Amino acid sequence: MSKTVLVVDDQIGIRLLLEEVIQQEGYNVELALNGKEALDKILDNKPDLIMLDYKLPIIDGPTLVEKLEKDHIIIPTIIMSGLPEKAQEDVQNLQSVFQTIAKPFQLNDIRQLLKHILD
Rank of each mutant, 00 (worst) to 15 (best):
M1A: 10
M1N: 09
K3W: 04
T4E: 12
L6S: 07
V7K: 13
V8R: 11
D9Q: 07
Q11Y: 09
I12V: 02
G13A: 15
G13E: 14
R15D: 06
R15C: 07
L16E: 15
L16W: 11
L17V: 00
E19W: 15
V21Q: 05
V21A: 03
Q23I: 05
Q23S: 11
Q24V: 05
G26T: 11
V29D: 03
E30S: 02
E30D: 05
A32E: 02
L33N: 12
L33M: 10
N34H: 08
G35Q: 01
G35L: 11
G35K: 03
K36F: 13
E37M: 14
A38Y: 14
A38M: 01
A38I: 09
L39C: 15
D40Q: 05
D40N: 11
K41M: 15
K41A: 15
I42N: 12
L43G: 03
D44P: 12
D44E: 13
D44T: 10
P47F: 06
P47W: 05
D48L: 10
L49A: 08
L49W: 15
L49D: 13
I50A: 06
M51F: 00
L52Y: 01
L52K: 05
D53L: 05
Y54I: 05
Y54W: 07
K55M: 15
P57N: 07
I58R: 04
I59N: 09
G61Y: 13
P62F: 08
T63L: 13
T63Q: 08
V65Q: 03
V65R: 10
E66N: 10
K67G: 06
L68Q: 06
L68N: 15
H72A: 15
I75G: 13
I75W: 14
T77W: 00
I79K: 04
S81H: 06
G82Q: 07
L83Q: 01
E85G: 04
K86N: 02
K86V: 06
Q88T: 07
E89C: 03
D90L: 01
V91Q: 03
V91S: 05
V91I: 10
Q92M: 12
L94H: 04
Q95V: 11
Q95S: 11
S96M: 07
S96A: 10
V97R: 10
V97T: 01
Q99L: 02
I101A: 14
A102C: 14
A102Y: 12
K103L: 07
K103T: 09
P104N: 04
P104V: 01
F105L: 09
Q106A: 09
Q106M: 02
Q106H: 09
Q106K: 11
L107Q: 11
D109V: 05
D109C: 02
D109Q: 04
I110K: 01
Q112L: 12
L114G: 03
K115A: 12
K115E: 05
I117M: 07
L118M: 01
D119P: 02
